[in-house]
């Protein structure tokens, strides 16, 4: 599914060059749920950008779904981002002027899907994240947790090979964060969606089945989580939420 071999990334600013990634080797199997952890400056953000095809590696190869993206042009990278990757950001990154429905339709516009099908698929995706009754709301009319669910619906809607989530619970309270993790776990277990979560919170990482630790541009530990936390169980134990 994802195969990264001997990948390096060097940033050059004037005379100084900084090596952010030093020969990374990583494989992520289809249908798995992986966390990437590490302190700031560990290279996990760089890894995230390269995994998301927003940036290109200096050397090494990155194969996603059988396509070596390290050799692709800008135009083809945009296509990969559109078809194979679904982003979920810490700050949600929804377009503020568009309704939830229109935000979810956005990736399909760039995929060239006709408007009727777009609407159907967007409605289905929003239903999946439990927002069927909020489709005409704008982001500022939604709670943080709801916004992140819109973002997840948007990430899902083109049936990507992986969902890349960058600190997806970072801006949320515990309960909303747990709800997001619940959605991820359901998507992973029931629909076999591959999910990679970048986080610096151990508790969040413990919801996955594998944690890859980064430090100083290398992987220092690749650990298996034997008993991942079930978000659903945690949610049941939390006191019922007041209306958000």
């Amino acid at each position: 599914m994802i195969k990264i071999s001997n990948l390096t990334k060097v940033y050059r600013t004037g005379a100084i060059s900084v090596t952010a990634l030093k020969g990374i080797n990583l494989e992520v199997a289809k249908g798995s749920m992986v966390a990437i952890m590490g302190p700031s400056g560990s290279g996990k953000s760089t890894m995230m950008n390269i995994l998301g095809c927003l940036d290109r590696a200096t050397s090494g190869s990155y194969i996603i779904d059988g396509v070596d993206v390290s050799t692709l042009q800008e135009k083809e990278l945009a296509k990969i981002r559109n078809h194979k990757i679904g982003f979920v950001f810490q700050t949600f990154n929804l377009l503020p002027r568009l309704t939830a429905l229109k935000n979810v339709e956005l990736p399909m516009i760039y995929a060239g899907i006709p408007s009727k099908e777009r609407r159907e698929r967007a409605l289905k995706a929003l239903d999946k994240v439990g927002l069927a009754d909020r489709i005409h709301h704008r982001p500022n009319e939604l709670s943080g947790g709801q916004r992140q669910r819109v973002a997840i619906a948007r990430a899902l809607v083109n049936n990507p090979a992986i969902i890349l989530a960058d600190e997806p619970t970072g801006n949320l309270d515990t309960r909303s964060g747990e709800e997001i993790m619940d959605i991820f776990q359901q998507l992973n277990q029931e629909e076999g969606v591959t999910i990679i979560i970048v986080t610096h919170e151990r508790e969040i990482a413990d919801h996955t089945r594998r944690i890859v630790h980064f430090r100083d541009g290398v992987i220092i530990k690749d650990e298996e989580v034997l008993t991942p936390i079930s978000a659903r169980t945690t949610l049941a134990a939390l006191p019922p939420a007041g209306e958000v």
């Binding site: 998301g52 927003l54 800008e74 135009k75 945009a78 296509k79 981002r81 559109n82 078809h83 982003f87 990154n93 929804l94 377009l95 956005l106 990736p107 760039y110 995929a111 948007r154 083109n158």
Partner: peptide, 9 residues
């Protein structure tokens, strides 16, 4: 955001 979602230049 648009670029991340697949908009070409």
């Amino acid at each position: 955001i648009r670029m991340a979602l697949g908009a070409r230049r």
